[in-house]
Each structure stands twice: as C-alpha cells, then as structure tokens.
Amino acid sequence: MTVGLLDRRLLFVTGKGGVGKTTIAAALALLAAEQGRRTLVCEVDAKGDLAGSYESGDIAFEPRELHPGLFAMAMDTEASLREYLAVQLKLPRFTRLGGLAHTFDFLANAAPGVKEILTVGKLAWEVRERHYDLVVVDAPASGHVIGQLQAPQAINEMLSVGPIREQTGWVLELLTDAATTGVVVVAAPEEMPVTESLELVDRLAQTNIDLAAVVVNRVLPELFGRAEEQVFERLARPEPAAALAAAAGPSAVAVVDAARLAVTLRRTRAGHLARLREGLGPSRPVLYVPELFARSHGLRATRQVAGALDAELS
C-alpha cells in the first residue's frame, strides 16, 4: 500500500448486499477515531443499520459525536441541497420550505444524478473543507455504487456551463486522487459475493477511482490441523462413535455432525477465497475479518471487527 488505508481522506465502503458492508464501515470509522483521527461516518442508504452498529439511537443529517473523534451522519439529499444553496452558492434563504421541497422533488426526479451528486458533493465538500481527517461512507451496494461515483462525471458531461459544472470539477479532482479517495470493497467468502466483488473491482478499474482495499468478512476459523482432522474423520467410525456417546452422552453425535458442517463450510469458503485472491492478483491489498460468533450485531461486535481490522492493518 502506498498510502495507509486510514490515511486517505475519503473512503467509500461498498459490497454486495448482506456481506456486512455497514459493519465494516462502522468498524473502520471507529478504528480511525480511536487512532486519533477526527472521523465522520456517513450512512447513505438511510436504513438505520449504522445506528445499530453503534447502538447510538437515530443518526441524522447533522453529524453527532458518538465517541471521542467519531461523528456520524445519515445522508439526506434534500438537506444537502439546502445546505449547498445556502453555504456554497450563498443564495439567500429565499425559498420557503414547501417551495424548496417541491422544487427538489422535481429536480431529483427529472434530472438524473441529482441525488447522487448531492450525496457525493456533500461528502467531498466535508473533505475539501478539512472538517474531518477522514470521511468513511457506508455507500450503496455494489450494483449502485459506480453510478453514484460517476455522477459528477455524468453531470460534468451534460452541463456545459454554470456553477454546478464548476463544482463538479473539483469534486472529480478529489475523487480521482488516489491519495485522497479510495473504495473499500467488502466481500464474503461465498460464491456470489466473490463473483460480484470481482466484477465490481473490474468496473472500478475502468473508472479513475482507486480501489483502496478488499475486505473479506466472515472468514471461518480453521478447526483442525492435518493430524487433528484425521482423528476427527475417524471419530465417525462405529467403535469410536459409540465410545464417545458413552463418555459424553448420546447426543455427542450431534456435536460431531455440527463440526462436520463447520468443516465443510470452511472448506467451501476456502475455495471461494482462493478464487477471489487469484482474481484480484497479487498487488491489491486484502484484509481478513473472521466470522464472529456474536450474540448480536451491536457495538461489541463492531469493536471486535475494528480489532480484527487493526490487526490486519498493522
């Protein structure tokens, strides 16, 4: 890695639905804040999962400090437009709220990419103004993220003049500077998530936006070494099985069955992991986060993931 992952200024965390994208974004932000960076984490799909990761209660457009140095916000494109008009274009707040809402509704539906540019523009602005050392984005799932990241480019091409075009200029510059901006692709070691991650990495390579890292979530621990595995296999033979049932209780067979499922799952996942590594090539950084057998997905789990990421990064 030329630039340390958390030394960039803007990270878009994405991945196929269900792989734990929000958890990874939450953990990266928590880790960065604990290392002393003033960090903003932003949830783009306002689903409330980020609040769940921090057990923080509702997260709103106005950033709130959840832990020392860790600020969280939820994207709201209408609020972003209001802020943009007032703060950046310095337009008087002439619009009554109702009028603006209508106009916004119209614009967002009519002009493609408006919501996307308001999202990316707001985040890029926070970076440019140096309000934070690092902005971590819990970005849309892999199918949608490229559209969002390319919105400034698309708008730039569609508009020939005007202040918005001027704005997209610096946003584009910031997004395409690899020392500043990077995408973190979260994958799980399963068939479709690996396939989709590789597709996303390919599509990303066709843009000017840098892939910062691939995070593989939910890697199962290896249960047995080779010698142990042999003993485990032999436990299924009639005599040892009967002896085990006699020693540990008749239901010990269910315990052995469960371990067999775990071993098989791990083996299957190891295959996908190998495919991912091979598809990515040697130069792209890959971080591994183990499967957490956690009671629930709250702050405790987020801390555990942050710890795992910390170990991978150092």
């Binding site: 002896a243 085990l244 006699a246 020693a247 209780g249 010990a252 315990v255 469960a258």
Partner: peptide
C-alpha cells in the same frame, strides 16, 4: 435446529471443559 438441542449442548460443554478426561476414557 440440532444446534439448540439441550442434550447436545450438555455434551458439547463436557467436551469443551474436560477434553483430557474424555480422551482418556476413549
């Protein structure tokens, strides 16, 4: 659902807490 079975749980706890003893028995 077998993962929730109380008897299997008891067996798993025994295996985890006194593996040496059980290994000797086997």
């Amino acid at each position: 659902v077998e993962l929730l079975d109380p008897e299997a749980t008891a067996a798993a706890r025994a295996l985890r807490s006194r593996p040496g003893e059980l290994a000797d028995e086997l």
